[in-house]
């Protein structure tokens, strides 16, 4: 709260330039879009839920850096997003893993079975493995955003606070 509108790159009271903030704003949706695209094309091309989650997390990180904790959180309504990502991702992953068990098959039996027809929506395939990948995406995204949010909150509250916890935000 000592520096409401400045991000972490600002030293000695200098605010982020208008240029940075404008670019950050412009880049936000395309960055999210890239993340989603990597997710959807996961089964056909480079990238998977992990990468997609990190890209989406980066899109938010950019906003936090440019606008500061308070404003970014306010504008993007990120309050519950980490919890949703965390719970939703874990739930989705667990469901795809263990529902087959209830049907009497080994865990992680994906359907449709090998050789069966798959419904395509563009490059997007309707298979349970993709659902699991979406779970991975949600979890990683929840982690990245949550870690950014919590660390930013801690540093904005206590400016000398540590931030080494964010290291794991990568893979």
């Amino acid at each position: 709260m000592t520096e409401p509108k400045t991000g972490s790159g600002a030293k000695g009271g200098a605010t982020m330039t208008v240029m940075t903030q404008t670019i950050a704003r412009i880049l936000f949706l395309p960055a999210l879009m890239t993340g989603i695209a990597v997710l959807i094309k996961g089964y056909a091309d480079v990238g998977d839920g992990f990468n997609a989650g990190v890209i989406a997390g980066l899109a938010f990180l950019l906003q936090y850096v440019a606008f500061g904790y308070e404003e970014a959180r306010e504008k993007l309504r990120t309050k519950y997003l980490p919890a949703i990502g965390f719970c939703g991702g874990l739930l989705l992953a667990l469901l795809t893993a263990f529902v087959p068990l209830l049907l009497g098959k080994p865990i992680f039996t994906h359907s449709p079975a090998p050789g069966a027809e798959v419904i395509h929506i563009g490059t997007f395939e309707l298979i349970t493995a993709v659902a699991f990948d979406v779970g991975v995406f949600l979890m990683v995204f929840g982690f990245a955003l949550g870690a950014i949010d919590i660390v930013a909150r801690a540093t904005s509250r206590n400016h000398a606070g540590g931030s080494a916890e964010e290291r794991e935000a990568g893979t």
Binding site: A44, L90, H110, V136
Partner: peptide, 28 residues
């Protein structure tokens, strides 16, 4: 057989799914 073109993704989401589940749990 796993309806995939990208080997890495299919390893993560299908062949080694249980490992991935463990890993994202650790992330959580």
């Amino acid at each position: 057989d796993a309806h995939a073109n990208d080997i890495v993704t299919v390893i993560l989401a299908d062949f080694r799914g249980l490992d991935t589940l463990g890993e994202i749990t650790v992330v959580g």
